[in-house]
Simulated scan of single mutants.
Amino acid sequence: MLDAHTRVPVAEYDACPVTGIVRRMGERWTLLVLALLARRPYRFNELHRAIEGISQRMLTRTLRGLEGDGLVERTVFPTVPPSVEYALSAEGADLMASLAPLTAWAVRRGGSSASM
């Protein structure tokens, strides 16, 4: 644990692998998209209908970011018109397994952040 007088250089903080994943998980739609994909693969429009309030643009940005991070895989099927399916990658499934204890902790607390 850092004491009150410890300073962490910004470059060191930004280079830390934990910083990147915490930033990604802190984005509004990321955890919801990952939670849905943990159940089964989805086509884009299925995901869009399943997530109330997300725009197509934001869903596209979220999926591209997760794909770029290696957490989601995108498969294009050669149909007319082409259909695209999104699924968790092995890394994404590993991440979701790692988040299970955090999820259980939050559920035990009743989802309240008031006492934090």
Rank of each mutant, 00 (worst) to 15 (best):
E27S: 08
S112E: 12
Y86R: 02
S83P: 04
V76T: 06
R109G: 15
L36A: 01
V18T: 10
F77L: 08
A50Y: 01
D14S: 13
R23M: 07
R23F: 08
A15H: 04
V80A: 11
L59D: 05
H48G: 03
R64H: 02
P17Y: 10
R108C: 09
G68V: 04
E85Q: 15
L34H: 03
A11G: 15
T103H: 05
S83E: 15
E85T: 13
R61Q: 12
S89M: 03
Y86H: 07
T75W: 03
V22P: 00
V33L: 03
Y86P: 01
R57E: 12
F44Q: 02
S83R: 15
L99R: 07
T75D: 07
A4K: 11
V22I: 13
A106M: 14
S98L: 14
S98E: 12
G65K: 01
A104E: 13
P81N: 02
L59M: 02
G111F: 09
E67Q: 14
V84M: 08
I21F: 07
R108S: 06
V107D: 14
W29C: 01
G68E: 06
R49W: 01
P41F: 05
P101N: 03
G70S: 05
L63D: 01
A114E: 10
R74S: 02
E67M: 10
R49H: 15
A4E: 14
Y42E: 00
R28T: 10
D94N: 12
E46N: 03
I54V: 13
Q56M: 11
R39C: 06
D69N: 13
G70R: 10
A38R: 12
T6V: 07
R61K: 11
T62V: 03
A104G: 11
R7A: 05
H5T: 10
T75Y: 03
G110V: 08
V33T: 06
H48Y: 09
